[in-house]
Amino acid sequence: MLQLIKFFTNNRVGLLFLILELIAFIFIVKSHSFHHSKYLNSANVISGSIHKKSTNIKNYFNLKSQNGDLVKENELLKNKLEQFIESTDSEKINSNTKYKYISSKVVYNSYHKRNNILTIDKGSNDSIKPNMGVVLSNGIIGITLRVSKNYSTVLSLLNSRTKINAKMKNSHHFGSLEWNGKSFSKAQFTDLPIQANIKIGDTLISGGKSVIFPEGIPLGVITDFSIDKKSYTTIDVNLFADFSALNNVFVVNNRLSEEQFELESINE
């Protein structure tokens, strides 16, 4: 025992090194478990505001392309509204819609790592909670992870822990969308039954099986696939959303999600 103490007093730097590395390693392990990454993340006031400042500066430089995107989205929404007015009877219009969208800005974007986590500038003050969907009009971005008062972190689709329910637009066969870490514009569609006849150019939309995301958000088109012994091995999907230029996103609040979660947990 005495020798052990002697060793450590003689080798204080080595001991400090081991302690610091152990602390860092605990942080790494904690960050890999879903709900415990509360120690080090940028959903806090200081880092949130630093990211916000630098994003504000960056945004000046691409105002033009952002305007273009917004105009396009406006056009799409106007067309949808037109269709909606034409198609609905007055009884069908219901003020208690299932989904509520909260618009938000991405203040920290990341897409070149294997496991990407983003930060957005809305938090619990805007009634955002963990496990809500984050979407664009042309794609799914991710799921909220940790929430502080004014900021939240988002588990990106470009993360090995993310798996999103998706289906074929024309045949309603289900599968899930994952990311293999290679290119930020391509995701992989898995678990698709062989009965689904797919071809290159088919469109993928979000499936209705998810509590988090609304059904029917366009995700991408199939660019490549291979078949091995009567099952699909890899299906590459070109994503509509450009993860390298995220700015305005929407957080989806499903008002009935708690009810559905509760019911499903009783069944299990």
Partner: peptide
């Protein structure tokens, strides 16, 4: 040196949501 580089890594990790990989 060890403590100051620990702090530097920690700041980077917090700002980039990287857990503790830069610190380590």
């Amino acid at each position: 040196l060890l403590i100051s580089s620990f702090l530097l890594g920690l700041f980077i990790d917090i700002l980039t949501n990287d857990g503790g990989i830069h610190t380590f």
